[in-house]
Each structure stands twice: as C-alpha cells, then as structure tokens.
Design a binder for these strands. Sequence first.
DNA 1: TTGAAAGCGCTAACAA
DNA 2: TTGTTAGCGCTTTCAA
Lengths: 345, 345
Amino acid sequence: MGITIKDVAKAANVAPSTVSRVIADHSRISENTKKRVRKAMKDLGYHPNVNARNLANKSTQALGIVMKSSTDKALQNPFFSEVLRGISSIAHQEEHSLFISTGETQDEIYESVERMVFGNQVDGIILLYSQVNDQVTDFLLEKEFPFVLIGKPYNQIDSITHVDNDNVTASIDITNHLIEQGHERIAFIGGDTDLVVTLDRMRGYELALEKAGLPIKDEYHIHEEFLKSGGRDAVHQLFQLDQPPTGLVIVDDLMSIGVMTMLEELGYQVPQDVSIVSFNNVYISEISRPPLTTVDVNIHGLGCQAAKCVIEKVNNVDEPAKRIIVPFDIKKRQSTRETKRASSP
Amino acid sequence: MGITIKDVAKAANVAPSTVSRVIADHSRISENTKKRVRKAMKDLGYHPNVNARNLANKSTQALGIVMKSSTDKALQNPFFSEVLRGISSIAHQEEHSLFISTGETQDEIYESVERMVFGNQVDGIILLYSQVNDQVTDFLLEKEFPFVLIGKPYNQIDSITHVDNDNVTASIDITNHLIEQGHERIAFIGGDTDLVVTLDRMRGYELALEKAGLPIKDEYHIHEEFLKSGGRDAVHQLFQLDQPPTGLVIVDDLMSIGVMTMLEELGYQVPQDVSIVSFNNVYISEISRPPLTTVDVNIHGLGCQAAKCVIEKVNNVDEPAKRIIVPFDIKKRQSTRETKRASSP
DNA sequence: TTGAAAGCGCTAACAA
DNA sequence: TTGTTAGCGCTTTCAA
C-alpha cells in the first residue's frame, strides 16, 4: 500500500540501505545524499513501516503498561490517569510507543502480558502496582524481561528496579501531624492488604503511634473494601467503640471522601469531631469539603521516573536493579484540627 | 532468541507453512498433523512473533486510543479510566492489543497518531473525545483510516462512525427534573466550549427552559474552566445577581463537586439553597455530599461499543458509517430538592 | 493434505 | 561513502 524504502531509494537514486542509514542518521553518509534522500522522503510522503523495522531490529520502540485488574476500581482510577500522563510524556520524548494490558480479570491480564512479551510487542514493561505474590511479576522475573515496578516489590526487592515513595516515612509524618495536634486515638483505614503500599502505610502509622507512646489497637484497624457496601458498617462500628477515634489515617484520598460521607451520615463532622489525613493528593482532594490534608506522592513524577528507568534498562541489559525514591510532600489543608489531649488533665 | 515456526516445524516433522496453517486453524489440515504440531508448539513453548506476522499480514491486531491532551485534566480523568476499561474488555475478548497515544500537547498527540497510522502500528483508532475543528479527525478522515469517535462529531456527522449518548435529550430530561421541582432560575455551567458534548448539553438545557417558558439569560451561562482559579469568581458573580439561580445544570460530576465546595464557602447549601444536577455518574458522584443527581451515561458501555465498532470497521472496509446511541439513565440522588415556585402566588 | 519458495519492508554485515 | 545481499519470522501462492 504505502511508500516503501525502495521507492524512496529509486527516487533519490541510491540504494535502499542508504535510505535506511539516512533514517537512522548514520554518520558515514555525505550531507549531500542525506539531503537528497530526505527530500525524496518528503516528496513521496514516506513513513517507515514499524513492523518491518521491529522485525529486523528485534526491538520495538514500545513499552507495555500493566495495570491491576480493576476490581477495586475506585481506588485505582485517578492515580492511573495521572501516572499514565507521566509515563506518556517521557515515552513521547524518547519516541517510544505505549502498549496497554487488556482484560478485566487477573488471568486475562496475565495472558495479555504474555502476549506482549512472547510476541515481541514491547521492549520493556511498567507495572503500575505492587502486589503480594503477583504472578505477572514472577513471570517477568523468570523471563528476565526488562521491567520496572511502581511501588515497592513484595519480595526480591534488590533484584527489581522500582520507583516508589518512602511510604513508611510519609505515613509516619502524616500520622505525626495528627499526633502533634493532640490526637491520641487514631485509627487506620487501609485498602487491599495485598497491596504493598497498604502495608507500608500501615507500618508507618504504627511506628508513629509507638514512638509517641500511643497504644496500637486492633479495633482501630480497618481493611475492608470501603467503597463497597461493607464500608459503612465498618465505619459505624469504629465509632461505636467506647473510645472512638478522633483521628483517621486513610490510605487513599478517594476512600477518605467516602468515609467523610459516611461520617456525616453518622452525625460526625470533619474536622470538628474527627480529623482525617490521607494519601495521594489526587485532584479531588483539593475540592472536597473540607479539602484534605494529604500526602502528595507526586504521581506524575512516579510515572516519569518509571518510564525513564525502563528505557534505561532496555537500552542496557546490564543496568543494575535500582530503587528510585520520589520525594513526597505533605499538603496541609482543612481536614484536621487540634483536639484536646484527653490524658493531660 | 525465541522459538520460531521453523523449530516447531522441525520438531513436528512438517514444513513451516504447515505450522502456520495450524496456527490459523486452517481447514485443509488433517487432525492428526494438527495434533502433532500443537504438541510440538507446547513442548517447545512456542509463541508467534507478532511483528513478523503483522508484516506478512499487513495487519496488526491492534487498536489505537487517542485521548485529548490533558490540559483540562480534572474534567477528563475519571471518564478516561472507565472508558478504557470498556474498550479493554472487548479488545481482550477479540484478541486485539491496545496502543495509546503519547504526548502532552495537541501537536505531540497528532504526531503520535501519525506514527500509529503511517507506521502500521494499529488497524483502527478510537478517539476518546470530539472537538471542534480537530486536526486528528481531519487527518484520519483524509487518510480514510478506520476510526470511531466517542461523542458526536462536530461535522461530517454522516461519514464518521461514532458512539454517543443522546446528550441533548439527556440534558432536557435532567433539566426538566429541576423544572419539575419548581426551579425557575436555572443556570448552566459548562466546560470547554470546544467540546461538542458541552454544546449538546447546553442545547438540551436551553430547549428544556424554552419548552417550560422560562427565560434563557446570558448571565446564567458560565463556561470558564472552573477547576482552575477563575471558577471561584464566576460562581461568585452568579450568586451576586439580583436573581441568583436556585438550580444548576453542570456538565460534569467533578465540576459539580468543585462548585459545591465553592458554594459552601459562599454560604450556600446544596440542596437547601441551590439544587444541582450533572452528568456522567462517575464513582465519586455517589460518595459526594450530597450524592449527586446525575445522568449515568454508561461510560463503560460507550467504551465497549466503540471497540466493537472499530473492529467491525477494520474487518470490513465497506462497513458504512454508523451512529450508536448508548442509552442514558438518570440517577436521582440528594443534590436536588423542591423549591417554591416564585411565580405562583 | 502438505511442501517449496517468494515476499512483506527494513537492517546490517560485507564488499566495493 | 555507498551498494549488494542475506536475513528477521511469518504467510501464502503454486505445485505436488
């Protein structure tokens, strides 16, 4: 159908290989012929056939993006678009295409990754999640396929290049923010416990409490999927305790908003009756009522770094596994407030 | 590197072409050899090289997805993930891969589409937006490249296959919901006026007012980008009018939430002082306070239909341009309430 | 029903 | 500096 390299060669009166070299901007080509060839390409409207090139090169200039199966859709959404924007900007800059995993279930996604890898569709892969016992991760490791993970690997941490925040410290810091404001009964609301990010944030929360000499109570941990029907009851229970919490650390902004709605139904006001801090700083956290005090994890930055890292790995197979920590920043807004210290008379 | 068709052929003691036929599940192959070849493929762990296949076939089993440059990021986000889920489920089912446009600016995205088309990277394209005077649309039309558009084309409506809601009717219906509740001063808050969806929804709003004999006032139209700094002032102005509105039709759920926050700052309560209806029914609209009365446009369904349509178009070049209307559904929640009719004494 | 061989469009080693 | 040529892995016509 299209114009091939041969057509260009003919028009410019050179060999196809010369055209190929001009495309690759090879050094040993005279400026003169370069010019002639370029003109011919333009005149004919030539565009290289990516498949042919990939076949000959054994390299596609493409990256695969694998997202978690979106059962817990609400939790993933805003994060996803934002991280994709980051990846996309670097990918474009480096002239790489983006391939996305398809499928709804875990198995379908796995299949889709297999196709990417075995079919030589991509040179490297970015995993947008980190999960306990993930078959996709295992597969990529076993195949020694270049990939990076956004988040912290559950195991083999030293052999997997990953881009993450220091979620433990972030969680300590934001929990401390509550503690500094006098809160002593602080509960933690997490998401999927299969996600490493949930575990890290919980860890930070516990460390902060411990350091402050506050008790860590089981009743103060909730891990259900909030955004579904169960959430309401769990929150309800939490506030039925003899000693209901006055502060809440919630792992995700969207969850925070859901919780705030439930709290209002139960007759609690944020921040008057209960303070909330959370994570991610997705757009909605600025316009919620009240605007959320949250950890800005720089989602866009995570995406950019991840893209840079895979490309590096692809270009150099021996690139050692590394760990990139993207700095976080705490955004103090209006979802928290000072509380009287119960213990200080 | 990998196992090729030749290796399989050797192992199964047949010619490469036979293997190829087995892969394609050709009819004129004896069950016996089929079995033998399949076993060999499994034993060797064979996976076809997609690039080679694409090259020989002049067809990639891939679809391109083009999203709007995300300057107005807040508006696009939740919609995007959801529509992608829809597309992705069909794509997987039909064994197609998904390619995503890269780049941040309009021009970068255009480049990226050119690469997809000229580079034979995809068989068809789905445009996730419909915009006035869009260069990408023009390009695809000119190249006669198979594509479908989600939304309503700005022009050439009969020659562009598109998947849309009946936004005019949806807007009439939801505006009527306010009118039925006694609202007479109803304002409209739209987004980017370059987006056809904004225009359609505005049209429906106006038609509904007209039908009800209510005046259409210029002061009741706002089209700035709310989610940025300007929004606050615009909303402020609206409620400084001698006759401030009691009802608001807002084109997007996320915008609605932003507006509710501003209203609260100005001392207005939703729905006590002002009722709000909006569009899309993204997840957040259920958990906002109050939950939003909104048009469920079935974002997932839009994605599914779009994917089906491109695949049809790809498989049959002569497939006529068609228009698929995905039904909407009004979700009545708590952001609206009856108001006293000012005019009825 | 199967095999041999040409070719998809491009790259890269080898020659010139 | 440039041309010739042999593949990359697969599909498909033509022949057997």
